[in-house]
Amino acid sequence: MYKNSMRLEFPASSDNERFARTVAAAFILELDPTVDQLSEIKTAVSEAVTNSIIHGYDNEYGSVTMEGSIFDDTVEFVISDDGAGISDIRRAREPLFTGKPEMERSGMGFTIMEAFMDSVEVESEVGKGTRVTMSKRISG
């Protein structure tokens, strides 16, 4: 059943957003995803990593971790930080809600993750950090 796993840890700087989603895309290539599936996973990963950088660490120093696992034809990514945490997860997941309107955030991050992945789970504690677990079945 278990096929593969990976773990990547990187500083919370915006130029690592591309790095993280590129690694995520490379990791799932063995599942032979379609171009659309690849694009959806890259976008969802990019949203979670950007959230950690902007909201978790407020663009300050910190560390983001991305773990990937492949079980049969399903991929799971866990993106976690030790940043500010989210006080109201339900509200944060509402479309168009943003905690940072002054930064021109669209408030669509979680909505896009939910639309592009099969499941998205968010665990967070204020002052401790946030952990987003998302999975998607890749059927050829």
Binding site: K42, T50, S106, G109
Partner: peptide, 13 residues
Amino acid sequence: TFMDSSGIGMIMG
């Protein structure tokens, strides 16, 4: 070749 919600936010602004 790629755009996420940050692009949406920038255009909204």
